[in-house]
């Protein structure tokens, strides 16, 4: 009796899990499949049908109309730039906060951590007038600086956590062997921290790539737009009737994330969880 009950409950849970997986993944699959359909296939066939052939015309059209191509490039530049900058700035900063000896380090640490509790919206309006007076709007560098500054508190939390796990003896031994502080950081500590840096990088990728509010506020020239803003514009001007190119445009925005997730899911999950817990 209890064996039978056991089998029934196992079947139910497997069915439920499969159902959940379908709900979570099928819409994304549908998006990719639809981006390969011709206009005829989209209008005449059922929404559940498969594309008749691998047809990349929609991608060509999305890329060349409505700034999707240029905004993809802009987003790549801003995302890559902020990923580089966050490592260059946050790693030495966190190192100095945890391992070096100076008076203000506790205060400076809590000063930067305070930034985690602030909703972006609160600083947005003065930030815009500041950028506006300095002529920093419509600038990719301006966006890179913003993306880096707003990821700094969280990245510093992750990195100081890492540095606290590094034994002081290791650093002291290196110093006794005659390493300068730059050599300690570059040659001794840096090679140990690939995991933490990967987490910081994936987190930075997602906050920059997925950003809407900053790019929408700071960028008014269509040629300088990033991908998420361009996607909204694209839907407004082309996507109402021509679904094919719109699906391709959405796929262009989604595929880099999916590819990254395929290889780095561990870091992305860790980064996103840390990001959510902040505040």
């Amino acid at each position: 009796m209890s064996g039978k009950k056991h089998i029934v409950s196992r079947c139910i849970s497997i069915i439920l899990v499969v159902l959940l997986l379908v709900i979570a993944i099928y819409p994304v699959l549908w998006l990719i499949l639809s981006s390969l359909k011709t206009q005829n296939e989209l209008t005449l066939n059922s929404a559940f049908s498969l594309p008749g052939s691998l047809n990349f015309d929609n991608y060509v059209e999305a890329w060349t109309t409505g700034n999707m191509g240029s905004s993809f490039v802009n987003s790549v530049i801003c995302t890559a730039g902020s990923m580089l900058l966050i490592v260059v700035i946050a790693v030495p900063f966190s190192f100095a906060l945890v391992k070096m000896r100076w008076k203000l380090r506790k205060r400076i640490n809590s000063y930067v951590l305070m930034g985690m509790m602030v909703p972006v919206q609160v600083a947005l309006i003065p930030l815009f007038s500041m950028y506006n007076t300095m002529g920093f709007t419509n600038s990719r560098i301006g966006l890179i600086l913003i993306y880096t500054a707003y990821s700094l508190p969280l990245s510093v939390t992750l990195l100081t956590g890492f540095f606290e796990s590094v034994p002081n003896e290791l650093i002291e031994a290196a110093v006794i062997d005659g390493c300068s502080i730059y050599q300690v950081l570059g040659k001794i500590v840096f090679p140990l921290m690939t995991n933490s840096i990967m987490t910081v990088l994936t987190l930075q990728f997602m906050s920059s790539w997925n950003d809407l509010i900053f790019s929408q506020t700071m960028i008014s020239q269509p040629a300088k737009q990033t991908i998420q803003t361009a996607l909204i514009m694209f839907n407004g001007s082309y996507g109402q009737v021509n679904w094919g190119p719109l699906f391709a445009a959405m796929a262009i925005a989604v595929i880099p994330t999916l590819v990254l997730y395929l290889f780095l899911s561990k870091f992305m999950i860790r980064g996103m969880t840390a990001g959510a817990v902040k505040g």
Partner: peptide, 10 residues
């Protein structure tokens, strides 16, 4: 977890 990492706008 896939939906969590996708861009909200897309």
């Amino acid at each position: 977890f896939i939906p969590v990492v996708l861009p909200g706008v897309a």
